[in-house]
Design a protein around this nucleic acid. Structure first.
Lengths: 343, 343
DNA sequence: TTGTATGCGTTATCAG
DNA sequence: CTGATAACGCATACAA
């Protein structure tokens, strides 16, 4: 009666060891590196494991092994299809490597993001994925202090030392703007997400200015409306643009959802797209092709980004520091929502 | 020099205790039940926590507290907006209660789902959310053996003893079918997701049969095409229907995405909706209103479902067994894609 | 190949 | 209100 095995509750390593007449170390080895144990004992141990229905205790395992095989991601919201898509690919790839995904969302709120990051780290995330570079230094400091490897997605800037997988938001939008300008548009407006703590949006707006400057237009002369994500907000913003700057002939939106809202507002106002006004988006999600007329936009490889992010983070966790920075290519998709400027 | 504090590595409770000149017990109390500690010491401790950037070690916490405050969900895929939306709300509500979300996806594959469930449980999930009732008994047995509380979402069947939050898929679709039949349609076809291990889809198809029977039509006389999720697959299925059953005047799809595909195919084939043929969807996601013409569909309160699921699971984890079953109401949204049957 | 012993960072029990 | 101290279940360096 002097064994340390409790007959109630779930079986532990000690129970298995006891049952199989070996030490706990042997059982542990049997489970984690079976090749380091005798075929005979192994069989006995495995039988014990099955007989007792043993499953390792996660907390204990994490505590002793100093890792959880869990990776976290904080995204603005899963309701935005681009993040849902990227996250799905991220999770799939993680799963292939035996890692599990922990998720939280920030609702585009910096303060909330910090909370989420802390919570996730507290939940034992081995590594973490964040969207874009912009955030308070506190978060980065915390992550550094906690030694949690961090990967940025959706943005790519060779100047930034931080590991990232993404694309050049600014250049991509500039490319698109060049197309717009090429159609003769001189009065361009932009509907953007709030740029305050969102480098993706900010860079896209800057991209338009870049293209204007290069085309000899005044980069300052750009009407910009900032508004939260959504079709309705896009509609409202469109109306606002047409009020503030009625001479506008092309509206470039920083994402497809806002653009769809703009399209809808245009129709309601009796304006023909692209005859009266051109509209462009960014992301190339499904509604871009569904929209009426179909949306000219920038195609972003969201799935690939998610997959690559997983691979990179896994590399980083392994201590391989190669390929710490990955730029993905985007592609302009010209569709009917862009046409020549009305003279 | 006899303290047990290591100056390298991440700060631990002991470090904080040391820094604040209190015992580890006090720090722990400070963090977990602040009311049980003196205001003065509390302040000192909290400062130490901030100064050191302390975060509790998850493994240790889980081991000592015997719970992870982590809840898991296995959904078919986040790329389906309905799940993304529900999951987002689920996560938000979980977060409000200090719980973190662990996610995996099954890709509508039963075998994969079982793997994911096992992995998530192995990661210490305190409870788990699953979509629909249909799955192998092995999963349910495993969950029972591991004593992991499980909640079903998206389906609701009073006959099922299992805790669930969802809606009556069958009745909802029957309601919609009644509307269709009320428009004079007698040759109805259905484009469904694979029904083999998907009770939601199966019930929706049955709902159509129910309505037909009640209207005096032969419930067996229903063309059903099963196809995976997607706009393209919806297109293909539509063509197949028109080949197999050219007399069809209304096509009811088990989700909006398939319906949008059907709409597109109809247009390509030169058929006018709803003049030549009516099309209906299910879910009422954004594309339903964006579609041309807007889709008649069943509105499902995805966000509310996610939020309620979180609340219920939390109740269950607390040991409160009340309200174990929750039925949510759906609502028919009549839009232009449904019209009278051509004579 | 196998066993022994120790440490992992918290929580919780019990004294003080 | 606060401090020792004993679990918690597993992994692993070190011995045998």
């Amino acid at each position: 009666m002097t064994n340390n095995t409790k007959d109630n509750g779930v079986p532990t390593l000690a129970d298995v060891a006891n049952y199989a007449n070996v030490s706990t170390a042997t059982v542990s080895r049997c489970l984690n590196s079976p090749e380091r144990v005798g075929g005979n004992t192994r069989k006995r141990v495995m039988k014990a494991v099955r007989d007792l229905g043993y499953a390792p205790n996660f907390g204990a395992q994490a505590l002793a092994a100093r890792q959880t095989n869990t990776v976290a991601a904080v995204i603005p919201t899963m309701e935005n299809a681009v993040f849902a898509r990227g996250l799905q690919a991220f999770q799939e790839e993680l799963g292939r490597h035996g890692k599990t995904l922990l998720v939280a969302s920030s609702a585009y709120n910096a303060e909330l993001e910090e909370q989420q990051v802390r919570a996730l780290v507290a939940r034992g995330a081995d590594g973490i994925l964040l969207i874009g570079y912009d955030r308070t230094p506190e978060i980065y400091e915390f992550l550094a202090k906690q030694k949690v490897p961090t990967l940025i997605a959706w943005s790519f800037n060779p100047e930034e030392p931080r590991p990232a997988v993404g694309f050049n938001n600014r250049a991509a939008m500039a490319d698109l703007a060049r197309q717009v300008i090429g159609q003769g548009h001189e009065n361009i407006a932009c509907i953007s997400a709030p740029t305050a703590s969102n480098d993706r949006a900010r860079e896209r707006v800057e991209g338009i200015r870049d293209a204007k400057a290069k085309a000899g237009q005044d980069p300052k002369n750009l009407t910009v409306i900032e508004t939260p994500y959504g079709i309705e907000t896009g509609e409202t913003a469109f109306r606002q643009v047409m009020t503030n700057a009625p001479q506008t002939t092309a509206i470039m939106c920083v994402n497809d959802v806002l653009a769809v809202g703009a399209l809808r507002a245009a129709r309601e106002m009796g304006m023909k797209v692209p005859n009266d006004i051109s509209v462009t988006g960014f992301d190339d999600i499904e509604i871009a092709t569904l929209a009426e007329p179909p949306l000219t936009t920038v195609h972003v490889p969201h799935r690939e980004m998610g997959r690559c992010a997983a691979d990179m983070l896994i590399q980083i966790l392994k201590g391989d520091l190669i390929g710490h920075n990955l730029e993905l290519a985007t592609e302009i998709r010209i569709r009917q929502s862009l046409g020549p400027a009305p003279h």
